[in-house]
Amino acid sequence: MLEKQHAGSPVLHIDRVNLTLGGHEILRDINLSIREGEFVCVVGPSGCGKTTMLRLLAGLYQPTSGDVTYRSTRMTHPRQDIAIVFQDYGKALLPWRTAHGNVSLAFEALNAPREGRDDKIEQLLAKVGLGGQGKKYPNQLSGGMQQRLQIARCLAQTPSVLLMDEPFGALDAMTRQGLQDEILSIVRGTGATAFFVTHDLEEAIYLGDRVIGLLPHPGRVAIEVEVNLPRDRNQLTTREDPEFLRLRRQLFDFIKEAES
């Protein structure tokens, strides 16, 4: 079933997109199709337009030329079934609302019925490992927990697409690995399509079905690799898989070349 979806029509489509912001050419001639249920990771040196690409897909930016479409309709504004996980969880959460209240915001935006909302929020919090922490304010939670909270809020939107902008960039290695596995199981479990920006090559290969490499000045797609690893990933065995190491080498060489 998943495999069938995998081969389906594109959910998100970027077609010959150029983007100029304030006189600077940020992205040039970007073409990308993301299939239903696919996990696409984007890597590249800083300033290559990874985040800008995500914002185009989110509908937060409009292309200067070309089209960004979601299921064949043009993205003219953000959609409620496309959720964004921002890198700076500290700024993306409402500090005056409890964990419960922060998740509730998504339901309020959806005008979801009040009845049963509390239970749903509690379930979502439990799903991201924040069960019983609903009464805490963001500043009482660790960085990893705050990011989990942001993910819970995104899941409240029951998104069909999850856009993630270096979500684990500010977290320590252990927390990071734990969250990588959780996000994988969440994405697989909901059948959502994922677009994941990172500067960590290993993270990109570990999570992705496909990895896109961008080059800067102006931002453009320079490399695209399919990740032919078993879909069930494991922090130890996957990272030791010869294919994983081959891909890592390939992308590493690409980045090194880009920086020289």
Binding site: A58, L60, Q80, I82, L94, L105, E108, A109, Q157
Partner: peptide
């Protein structure tokens, strides 16, 4: 400003942004 982007991504209405984001902030 990030909170305004969050509001747009969540699809909050204009009045909800004022009463749930700007005012408490």
């Amino acid at each position: 400003p990030r909170l305004y982007e969050v509001s747009r991504a969540l699809g909050l209405s204009r009045s909800a942004v004022i009463f749930k984001i700007s005012l408490p902030s």
